[in-house]
Protein backbone atom coordinates (compact mmCIF):
# COMPACT_ATOMS: atom_id res chain seq x y z
CA UNK A 1 0.00 0.00 0.00
CA UNK A 2 2.66 2.54 1.04
CA UNK A 3 4.62 1.54 -2.01
CA UNK A 4 1.68 2.45 -4.23
CA UNK A 5 1.24 5.81 -2.52
CA UNK A 6 4.94 6.58 -2.88
CA UNK A 7 4.90 5.69 -6.56
CA UNK A 8 1.78 7.79 -7.14
CA UNK A 9 3.51 10.78 -5.55
CA UNK A 10 6.66 10.04 -7.52
CA UNK A 11 4.75 10.08 -10.80
CA UNK A 12 2.76 13.14 -9.77
CA UNK A 13 5.89 15.16 -9.10
CA UNK A 14 7.43 14.07 -12.38
CA UNK A 15 4.29 15.14 -14.24
CA UNK A 16 4.06 18.43 -12.35
CA UNK A 17 7.62 19.38 -13.25
CA UNK A 18 7.18 20.49 -16.88
CA UNK A 19 4.10 22.42 -15.82
CA UNK A 20 5.93 24.04 -12.92
CA UNK A 21 8.89 25.08 -15.09
CA UNK A 22 6.66 26.68 -17.70
CA UNK A 23 4.56 28.35 -15.04
CA UNK A 24 7.35 29.95 -13.00
CA UNK A 25 8.88 31.17 -16.25
CA UNK A 26 5.60 32.82 -17.08
CA UNK A 27 5.47 34.32 -13.57
CA UNK A 28 8.68 36.23 -14.35
CA UNK A 29 7.42 37.35 -17.73
CA UNK A 30 4.14 38.58 -16.28
CA UNK A 31 5.80 40.21 -13.29
CA UNK A 32 7.54 42.53 -15.72
CA UNK A 33 4.26 43.22 -17.47
CA UNK A 34 4.16 40.83 -20.42
CA UNK A 35 1.61 38.04 -20.75
CA UNK A 36 2.94 35.31 -23.03
CA UNK A 37 0.16 33.10 -24.32
CA UNK A 38 2.61 31.35 -26.60
CA UNK A 39 3.91 29.09 -23.81
CA UNK A 40 2.11 26.07 -25.27
CA UNK A 41 3.72 26.59 -28.67
CA UNK A 42 7.15 27.13 -27.15
CA UNK A 43 6.77 23.93 -25.12
CA UNK A 44 5.98 22.02 -28.31
CA UNK A 45 9.05 23.50 -30.00
CA UNK A 46 11.15 22.65 -26.96
CA UNK A 47 9.82 19.09 -27.12
CA UNK A 48 10.61 18.52 -30.79
CA UNK A 49 14.04 20.16 -30.46
CA UNK A 50 14.92 18.00 -27.46
CA UNK A 51 13.55 14.88 -29.10
CA UNK A 52 15.42 15.34 -32.34
CA UNK A 53 18.66 16.35 -30.67
CA UNK A 54 18.55 13.33 -28.37
CA UNK A 55 17.61 10.98 -31.21
CA UNK A 56 20.45 12.17 -33.42
CA UNK A 57 23.21 12.53 -30.83
CA UNK A 58 22.02 10.06 -28.23
CA UNK A 59 22.99 12.63 -25.64
CA UNK A 60 20.20 13.60 -23.22
CA UNK A 61 22.00 16.68 -21.92
CA UNK A 62 22.18 18.06 -25.47
CA UNK A 63 18.46 17.34 -25.72
CA UNK A 64 17.64 19.44 -22.68
CA UNK A 65 19.91 22.21 -23.94
CA UNK A 66 18.23 22.16 -27.37
CA UNK A 67 14.85 22.65 -25.66
CA UNK A 68 16.24 25.52 -23.64
CA UNK A 69 17.84 27.13 -26.69
CA UNK A 70 14.73 26.95 -28.87
CA UNK A 71 12.84 28.51 -25.97
CA UNK A 72 15.23 31.48 -25.94
CA UNK A 73 14.89 31.89 -29.72
CA UNK A 74 11.09 31.92 -29.50
CA UNK A 75 11.33 34.26 -26.53
CA UNK A 76 13.38 36.67 -28.63
CA UNK A 77 10.78 36.50 -31.36
CA UNK A 78 7.98 37.16 -28.89
CA UNK A 79 9.75 39.96 -27.03
CA UNK A 80 10.61 41.60 -30.34
CA UNK A 81 6.91 41.61 -31.22
CA UNK A 82 5.53 42.58 -27.82
CA UNK A 83 8.22 44.89 -26.40
CA UNK A 84 10.02 46.37 -29.39
CA UNK A 85 7.10 46.58 -31.82
CA UNK A 86 4.58 46.95 -28.96
CA UNK A 87 2.07 44.62 -30.62
CA UNK A 88 -0.96 43.40 -28.74
CA UNK A 89 0.38 40.69 -26.45
CA UNK A 90 -2.62 38.39 -26.76
CA UNK A 91 -2.42 38.39 -30.54
CA UNK A 92 1.37 38.01 -30.60
CA UNK A 93 1.14 35.16 -28.08
CA UNK A 94 -1.50 33.32 -30.08
CA UNK A 95 0.72 33.73 -33.12
CA UNK A 96 3.61 32.10 -31.26
CA UNK A 97 1.31 29.28 -30.15
CA UNK A 98 0.10 28.49 -33.65
CA UNK A 99 3.61 28.76 -35.04
CA UNK A 100 4.95 26.33 -32.45
CA UNK A 101 2.00 23.99 -32.84
CA UNK A 102 2.29 23.74 -36.61
CA UNK A 103 6.04 23.91 -36.91
CA UNK A 104 6.77 21.22 -34.31
CA UNK A 105 4.45 18.77 -36.03
CA UNK A 106 5.78 19.70 -39.46
CA UNK A 107 9.35 19.11 -38.34
CA UNK A 108 8.47 15.76 -36.81
CA UNK A 109 6.56 14.50 -39.85
CA UNK A 110 9.29 15.72 -42.20
CA UNK A 111 12.01 13.97 -40.24
CA UNK A 112 10.25 10.87 -38.98
CA UNK A 113 7.15 10.42 -41.14
CA UNK A 114 4.12 9.00 -39.44
CA UNK A 115 6.01 6.46 -37.34
CA UNK A 116 6.17 6.75 -33.58
CA UNK A 117 9.82 6.71 -32.74
CA UNK A 118 10.87 6.28 -29.14
CA UNK A 119 14.05 7.36 -27.46
CA UNK A 120 15.77 6.14 -24.36
CA UNK A 121 14.28 8.07 -21.43
CA UNK A 122 16.68 9.54 -18.90
CA UNK A 123 17.09 7.36 -15.83
CA UNK A 124 15.51 8.26 -12.51
CA UNK A 125 18.43 9.15 -10.32
CA UNK A 126 18.27 8.15 -6.64
CA UNK A 127 19.86 10.64 -4.27
CA UNK A 128 22.26 8.64 -2.11
CA UNK A 129 21.11 8.58 1.49
CA UNK A 130 17.91 10.55 1.07
CA UNK A 131 16.36 7.86 -1.08
CA UNK A 132 16.41 5.51 1.89
CA UNK A 133 13.95 7.59 3.91
CA UNK A 134 10.76 5.54 4.03
CA UNK A 135 8.11 6.58 1.45
CA UNK A 136 9.50 10.15 1.09
CA UNK A 137 12.75 8.84 -0.31
CA UNK A 138 11.01 6.85 -3.00
CA UNK A 139 8.52 9.65 -3.72
CA UNK A 140 10.86 12.64 -3.83
CA UNK A 141 14.42 11.46 -4.24
CA UNK A 142 14.26 8.86 -6.98
CA UNK A 143 13.45 11.31 -9.73
CA UNK A 144 14.25 12.68 -13.19
CA UNK A 145 16.92 15.39 -13.62
CA UNK A 146 14.52 18.31 -14.15
CA UNK A 147 12.63 17.40 -10.98
CA UNK A 148 15.79 18.02 -8.98
CA UNK A 149 16.25 21.23 -10.95
CA UNK A 150 12.84 22.49 -9.77
CA UNK A 151 13.67 21.63 -6.15
CA UNK A 152 16.51 24.15 -6.32
CA UNK A 153 15.45 26.56 -9.05
CA UNK A 154 11.96 27.50 -7.88
CA UNK A 155 12.91 28.48 -4.30
CA UNK A 156 15.82 30.45 -5.78
CA UNK A 157 13.47 32.22 -8.19
CA UNK A 158 11.13 33.01 -5.31
CA UNK A 159 14.01 34.44 -3.30
CA UNK A 160 15.26 36.49 -6.25
CA UNK A 161 11.81 37.90 -6.93
CA UNK A 162 11.12 39.09 -3.40
CA UNK A 163 14.51 39.65 -1.82
CA UNK A 164 16.90 40.80 -4.51
CA UNK A 165 17.38 44.07 -6.34
CA UNK A 166 16.70 42.15 -9.56
CA UNK A 167 13.30 41.13 -8.21
CA UNK A 168 12.50 44.67 -7.11
CA UNK A 169 13.30 45.92 -10.62
CA UNK A 170 11.23 43.18 -12.28
CA UNK A 171 8.24 43.82 -10.05
CA UNK A 172 8.53 47.59 -10.42
CA UNK A 173 8.54 47.29 -14.21
CA UNK A 174 5.29 45.34 -14.12
CA UNK A 175 3.62 47.56 -11.56
CA UNK A 176 4.73 50.97 -12.80
CA UNK A 177 7.26 51.00 -15.66
CA UNK A 178 7.48 54.78 -15.58
CA UNK A 179 8.55 54.70 -11.95
CA UNK A 180 11.21 52.12 -12.79
CA UNK A 181 12.37 54.11 -15.80
CA UNK A 182 12.69 57.37 -13.87
CA UNK A 183 14.78 55.57 -11.28
CA UNK A 184 17.21 54.43 -13.92
CA UNK A 185 16.00 50.86 -14.41
CA UNK A 186 16.31 49.80 -18.05
CA UNK A 187 12.65 48.89 -18.53
CA UNK A 188 13.06 47.45 -22.02
CA UNK A 189 16.01 45.29 -21.04
CA UNK A 190 14.16 43.92 -18.01
CA UNK A 191 11.14 43.06 -20.15
CA UNK A 192 13.22 41.38 -22.86
CA UNK A 193 15.25 39.36 -20.39
CA UNK A 194 12.30 38.12 -18.35
CA UNK A 195 10.51 37.05 -21.52
CA UNK A 196 13.61 35.20 -22.77
CA UNK A 197 13.99 33.58 -19.40
CA UNK A 198 10.34 32.57 -19.22
CA UNK A 199 10.45 31.17 -22.74
CA UNK A 200 13.66 29.30 -22.02
CA UNK A 201 11.92 27.57 -19.12
CA UNK A 202 8.93 26.83 -21.38
CA UNK A 203 11.28 25.25 -23.90
CA UNK A 204 12.92 23.23 -21.14
CA UNK A 205 9.47 22.23 -19.90
CA UNK A 206 8.67 20.85 -23.35
CA UNK A 207 11.96 18.97 -23.33
CA UNK A 208 11.22 17.50 -19.90
CA UNK A 209 7.75 16.43 -20.94
CA UNK A 210 9.01 14.73 -24.09
CA UNK A 211 12.18 13.15 -22.72
CA UNK A 212 11.02 12.17 -19.24
CA UNK A 213 7.27 11.58 -19.41
CA UNK A 214 6.45 10.36 -22.91
CA UNK A 215 9.79 9.32 -24.39
CA UNK A 216 8.41 10.05 -27.84
CA UNK A 217 6.99 12.93 -29.83
CA UNK A 218 3.57 13.21 -31.40
CA UNK A 219 1.33 16.00 -32.64
CA UNK A 220 0.09 18.30 -29.84
CA UNK A 221 2.15 16.45 -27.28
CA UNK A 222 1.47 19.10 -24.64
CA UNK A 223 -2.35 18.81 -24.91
CA UNK A 224 -2.96 22.21 -23.29
CA UNK A 225 -0.35 22.07 -20.52
CA UNK A 226 1.10 25.39 -21.72
CA UNK A 227 -2.23 27.10 -21.25
CA UNK A 228 -2.66 25.49 -17.85
CA UNK A 229 0.77 26.88 -16.99
CA UNK A 230 -0.46 30.38 -17.80
CA UNK A 231 -3.57 29.73 -15.71
CA UNK A 232 -1.42 28.58 -12.79
CA UNK A 233 0.24 31.98 -12.74
CA UNK A 234 -3.14 33.43 -11.74
CA UNK A 235 -3.72 30.51 -9.38
CA UNK A 236 -0.38 31.29 -7.74
CA UNK A 237 -1.02 35.04 -7.66
CA UNK A 238 2.30 35.65 -9.49
CA UNK A 239 4.29 33.84 -6.79
CA UNK A 240 6.67 31.11 -8.07
CA UNK A 241 6.15 28.86 -5.02
CA UNK A 242 2.37 29.02 -5.24
CA UNK A 243 2.43 28.39 -8.99
CA UNK A 244 4.56 25.32 -8.24
CA UNK A 245 1.96 24.20 -5.69
CA UNK A 246 -0.70 24.50 -8.38
CA UNK A 247 1.40 22.39 -10.73
CA UNK A 248 1.76 19.75 -8.02
CA UNK A 249 -2.02 19.61 -7.52
CA UNK A 250 -2.42 18.97 -11.24
CA UNK A 251 0.40 16.43 -11.29
CA UNK A 252 -0.97 14.49 -8.32
CA UNK A 253 -4.51 14.37 -9.73
CA UNK A 254 -3.12 13.17 -13.02
CA UNK A 255 -1.02 10.54 -11.33
CA UNK A 256 -3.95 9.27 -9.25
CA UNK A 257 -6.22 9.06 -12.25
CA UNK A 258 -3.60 7.25 -14.33
CA UNK A 259 -2.98 4.79 -11.51
CA UNK A 260 -6.69 4.11 -11.07
CA UNK A 261 -7.37 3.49 -14.75
CA UNK A 262 -6.24 -0.15 -14.78
CA UNK A 263 -8.06 -1.32 -11.64
CA UNK A 264 -11.24 0.44 -12.76
CA UNK A 265 -11.05 -1.25 -16.15
CA UNK A 266 -10.61 -4.61 -14.47
CA UNK A 267 -13.48 -3.96 -12.07
CA UNK A 268 -15.74 -3.47 -15.06
CA UNK A 269 -16.11 0.29 -15.11
CA UNK A 270 -14.65 1.26 -18.51
CA UNK A 271 -16.65 4.52 -18.55
CA UNK A 272 -14.84 5.59 -15.38
CA UNK A 273 -11.56 5.53 -17.30
CA UNK A 274 -12.73 8.47 -19.38
CA UNK A 275 -13.83 10.26 -16.27
CA UNK A 276 -10.40 9.68 -14.80
CA UNK A 277 -8.76 11.15 -17.92
CA UNK A 278 -10.89 14.24 -17.45
CA UNK A 279 -10.32 14.52 -13.70
CA UNK A 280 -7.08 16.54 -13.67
CA UNK A 281 -8.68 19.18 -15.87
CA UNK A 282 -11.77 19.40 -13.67
CA UNK A 283 -9.64 19.72 -10.56
CA UNK A 284 -7.43 22.38 -12.10
CA UNK A 285 -10.42 24.40 -13.34
CA UNK A 286 -12.02 24.32 -9.88
CA UNK A 287 -8.70 25.23 -8.26
CA UNK A 288 -8.25 28.12 -10.70
CA UNK A 289 -11.73 29.45 -10.03
CA UNK A 290 -11.30 29.29 -6.26
CA UNK A 291 -7.75 30.58 -6.03
CA UNK A 292 -7.92 33.24 -8.73
CA UNK A 293 -10.63 35.19 -6.96
CA UNK A 294 -9.28 38.48 -5.80
CA UNK A 295 -5.99 37.91 -7.62
CA UNK A 296 -4.52 41.27 -8.52
CA UNK A 297 -2.29 41.13 -11.58
CA UNK A 298 0.70 43.45 -12.03
CA UNK A 299 -0.86 46.81 -12.85
CA UNK A 300 0.80 47.16 -16.24
CA UNK A 301 0.32 43.55 -17.34
CA UNK A 302 -0.41 43.56 -21.05
CA UNK A 303 0.45 47.23 -21.55
CA UNK A 304 3.43 47.88 -23.84
CA UNK A 305 5.78 50.55 -22.49
CA UNK A 306 6.79 53.70 -24.29
CA UNK A 307 8.31 56.90 -22.98
CA UNK A 308 6.46 59.43 -25.12
Amino acid sequence: MWDVIASVINLGIAMATPLALASVGEVYSERSGTINLGVEGIMLMGAIAAFHMTYVTGDLLLGYLAGLAIGVIFGMLFSFMSVTLRLNQVIAGMGIYFLGFGLSDFIYKTLYGKEYVTIQKPPQIPVPGLVNIPIIGQALFDQYPTVYLTYILIPVLWYLLYKSSIGISVRAVGENPKAADTMGVNVFLVKHLTIWFGSALAGLAGAALCLEITGLFFENLTFGLGFIAVGLVYFGKWDPMKAWAGALIYGMTWSISVTLQDPLQKMGHPEMVYFMLMLPYIVIIIALVIMSRGARPPKYLGVPYTRE
Binding site: S165, A172, E175, A180
Partner: peptide
Protein backbone atom coordinates in the same frame (compact mmCIF):
# COMPACT_ATOMS: atom_id res chain seq x y z
CA UNK B 1 6.21 57.59 -10.20
CA UNK B 2 5.91 55.23 -7.27
CA UNK B 3 5.16 51.53 -7.25
CA UNK B 4 1.98 51.38 -5.16
CA UNK B 5 2.34 47.73 -4.24
CA UNK B 6 5.83 48.10 -2.81
CA UNK B 7 7.14 49.54 0.43
CA UNK B 8 8.86 52.89 0.82
CA UNK B 9 12.24 51.15 1.15
CA UNK B 10 11.81 49.17 -2.02
CA UNK B 11 10.72 52.27 -3.91
CA UNK B 12 13.66 54.30 -2.71
CA UNK B 13 16.34 51.71 -3.51
CA UNK B 14 14.78 50.75 -6.84
CA UNK B 15 17.46 51.00 -9.50
CA UNK B 16 20.24 51.66 -6.97
CA UNK B 17 23.31 49.45 -7.23
CA UNK B 18 24.88 50.48 -3.97
CA UNK B 19 23.13 47.79 -1.93
CA UNK B 20 24.13 44.95 -4.24
CA UNK B 21 22.04 42.12 -5.60
Amino acid sequence: TLVEDMTVVENVILGLRKYGT
